[in-house]
Nucleic acid binder design. Structure first.
Length: 747
DNA sequence: GTTAGAAACAATCCT
DNA sequence: TGTTTCTAAC
């Protein structure tokens, strides 16, 4: 019996049809990852294809990681040569090798949304645009959409002729792109755009990759935008062995440029395409699937599909309406508690899904006081926190001196007494001389206008230069630690001794850990490599399967995941579908929301609870909302719990109140629940915040460190729930470090 | 040049 | 409500 016997006939067809274009329409829970991984295996084992010629492309690192793991376990030999990665890391990898052909340096930096905004602000100032009337964000939005559509600044300018507002946007776009180039930086969209540009302009490079990727598989194809479509099209042009997998009913990324036509018109672009439908769902109960089907049936213009399952009917969908959003959170917390203790379930099987990130706050507060372990996905990215960005800016400056943004960010952090006036003068000088900002700083002595401020600049420049010379032999994590030492960044925070500062310090420790982990995981770690990884991770990538905590995230983040027990919270008209789509006169916007609802329902395997509140606070104002129209699209026969909803809230908020008293008398959460600086990963377990680490060593003891070797403990200082340990190492001198991170062993 | 406190303002969703 | 920008005082 072969491994392919476990697949159903449609899945088998998808696996065995290896040559030419293939479109796999894979309904929710129909086992598409299984198909893709088996297909890779089949190509290698049965068709004798060299794994080197196979590429699988996804949207998130998490999906790529999972696929890699599953392929590895299926394929006996050579699976590591298969190129499995995301669109963005694929492009970065290609650009790091060849972008010099487009006039960029191969050590370009990648700008995140924050960086883009700062840059745009600067440009608006330069072009004397009143940002009260034209917002930076709207320019960035326009530019991003243009890039998604592969519209260059030049073409945008041509198209804008005669339209005052568009001409202004065109000017901004041109200026923005020029600034990026000057800084040797690419924004997120550029990663795709520049790769396409490279392929279009350089036949040699294109041919190399076409030869390499003879078999291409694309996951979540309904999410591709026009630029990504062209990227794939170019790559697949020579061998035409392109297999795309997607589900038009799960297309939920129009706002970031996803073009649903890519999947709907696949057969027109590839007339010889084989179309295969996967319609058997292996995930959900009959009731859940019926609910999902009846909701999505209200959309027009879908590809015909009939999702079915041979699973039993299962429980009814539990629907509850509450007076307030607080009661909603109370109920869900109590219900999770009940399910976990009664049914022997575990927290890890529960997920709360909502439309907007802001909704996580109430649940977070509730879970902290109730001692329910949880993890929030999304919101502010770890790498977007101020303290992390500051330190990364140091690394970027050391790595790429042409990144003006990074230099300007840290030139006065910590305070060096260099203010706006001086910076303005340096800037002017840089422009006059055609230098980068950093080069101008190096030449500060030559700038007549800045006078004695040059004295303040020189130490900074010296510091960066010294660090540059040390990059090679220090490595990323030690470089980072030396920056922290030399600049006194952490020391300054320690002096502040507030909860917020403490949380920032913990984040910095986390960053060091990530640097160490990077160095350990990579064969030849480099500073650029680390910065690249950092730029491309999404919050969802850190979600570990099998962990025992409740997961909270937006419906968008939940795509591709499944949970036994799902709560869809805030199902109110105005929240979901969102206010903006309700007032929009484009009916397709509601359809996209409906698809999002479909995605949400189909995440559930056995238990689905839908909740809403009659009133909730939004930005300080109380809003009154009706039950979501999507709930009304579910046949009443599938719903349970509604009749009880009038008494139930009181009852549950009381029982939840009990657990609150219990918890609060015993445990005092270390973080203020309002503290947005907290590292969510670190403190997810409310209970763990009480565990103070115990040290097996004391002052004077001999200890051993993973990297630094042996040494003697000089001093131990208590700080929060951690200890700061000073150790005199035999080889590398005296170092200060946190006990929880350093993992010192007594010898 | 730096800081804190007041005022203004905002509208999803994300790699 | 939470965050960013402006203003005034040190």
């Amino acid at each position: 019996m072969s491994m392919y016997d476990n697949l159903n006939s449609m899945q088998q067809e998808a696996v065995f049809h290896t040559e030419g274009p293939v479109l796999i329409l894979a309904g929710a829970g129909s086992g598409k990852t299984r198909v893709l991984t088996h297909r890779a295996s089949y190509l290698i084992e049965e068709k004798g294809v060299n794994p080197w010629h196979i590429m699988a492309i996804t949207f998130t690192n998490k999906a790529a990681g999972e696929m890699r793991e599953r392929i590895d376990s299926l394929v006996g030999f050579g699976s590591e040569s298969i190129w499995v990665s995301t669109f963005h890391s694929t492009c970065v990898r290609i650009l790091r090798r060849h972008i010099d052909r487009l006039g960029y340096d191969t050590n370009f930096t990648i700008y995140d949304a924050d960086d883009q905004k700062i840059l745009m602000k600067d440009i608006c100032k330069r072009l004397q645009i009143d940002t009260k009337i034209y917002k930076e964000k709207s320019f960035l939005g326009v530019i991003s959409s243009a890039k998604d559509e592969l519209i260059s600044p030049e073409e945008f300018t041509l198209r804008a002729a005669g339209d005052f507002a568009k001409e202004k946007q065109a000017a901004v776009y041109r200026e923005y792109q020029a600034a990026l180039r000057k800084n040797n930086a690419l924004d997120f969209d550029d990663l795709i755009v520049k790769t396409v540009e490279l392929f279009q302009n350089d036949a040699e490079v294109l041919d190399y990759y076409q030869e390499r990727f003879r078999y291409i598989m694309v996951d979540e194809y309904q999410d591709t935008d026009t630029a990504q479509f062209h990227l794939i099209k170019l790559l697949a042009e020579k061998y035409r062995n392109l297999c795309v997998v997607g589900d038009d009913d799960q297309s939920i990324y129009k706002f970031r440029g996803a073009n649903i036509k890519n999947i709907l018109n696949f057969e027109e672009i590839y007339p010889d395409a084989r179309v295969i439908k996967l319609e058997q769902n292996y995930r959900s109960t009959q009731n859940i699937l019926n609910a999902a089907n009846s909701v999505i049936a209200n959309n027009v213009g879908r590809k015909a599909k009939a999702l079915w399952t041979d699973h039993p009917e299962g429980e009814k969908i539990n629907f509850q309406q509450f007076e307030t959003a607080y009661e909603e959170a109370d109920y869900i917390a109590a219900d999770i508690r009940k399910k976990v203790s009664e049914n022997g379930g575990h927290y890890g099987g529960c997920a709360i899904l909502y439309r907007t990130n802001a909704q996580s706050r109430l649940f977070e507060e509730k879970f902290v006081v109730s001692n329910i372990p949880y993890k929030i996905v999304g919101g502010i990215n770890f790498y977007a926190r101020k303290e992390i960005k500051d330190l990364l800016a140091y690394l970027k400056t050391i790595d790429n001196g042409r990144d003006d943004l990074a230099v300007r960010r840290i030139i006065n952090v910590p305070k060096r007494g260099i203010g706006a006036t001086t910076l303005g003068r340096v800037q002017t000088y840089a422009e006059e001389q055609g230098l980068s900002f950093y080069q101008a700083l190096r030449a500060a002595d030559e700038i007549s206008t800045i006078g004695k401020a040059g004295m303040k600049i020189r130490p900074f420049v010296n510091f960066i230069q010294t660090m540059r010379s040390k990059v090679e032999y220090l490595g990323v994590s030690k470089l980072l630690q030396e920056i922290i030492e030399e600049t006194g960044y952490v020391a300054e925070l320690e002096a502040e001794s507030s909860d917020e500062a403490q949380a920032r310090i913990e984040n910095i420790d986390e960053l060091i850990s990530k640097a160490v982990a990077y160095e350990e995981s990579e064969e030849s770690p480099t500073l650029s490599g680390f910065l690249e990884m950092v730029a491309l991770v999404a919050d969802i990538d850190n979600l570990q399967e099998g962990s025992d905590y409740v997961v909270l995230m937006t419906l968008h983040s939940a795509k591709g995941l499944e949970f036994p027990n799902v709560y869809l919270a805030g199902m109110e008209d105005g929240m979901f579908p969102s206010y903006i789509t309700i007032i929009s006169d484009d009916p397709s916007e509601i359809e996209e929301e409906r698809r999002l609802c479909y995605v949400g329902i189909t995440r559930a395997m056995t238990d689905l609870t839908i909740t809403c509140a009659k009133q909730r606070m939004i930005r300080g104002e109380t809003q009154y909302n009706k039950v979501s129209r999507f709930v009304k699209e579910i046949p009443e026969t599938l719903l349970g719990g509604m009749a009880r909803s009038r008494q139930k809230p009181k009852e549950t908020s009381e029982s939840a109140g009990q657990s609150f008293r219990q918890a609060s008398s015993k445990v005092k959460p270390i973080f203020s629940t309002r503290n947005s600086y907290q590292s969510r990963q670190a403190n997810s377990f409310a209970s763990s915040s009480t565990d103070k680490i115990t040290l097996e060593y004391g002052s004077g003891d001999r200890v051993k460190h993973m990297k630094f070797g042996e040494g003697t403990v000089v001093q131990i200082v208590e700080g929060g729930r951690d200890y700061e340990v000073t150790v005199a190492f035999d080889r590398v001198g005296t170092k200060k470090m946190f006990a929880s991170f350093a993992k010192l062993k007594k010898v």
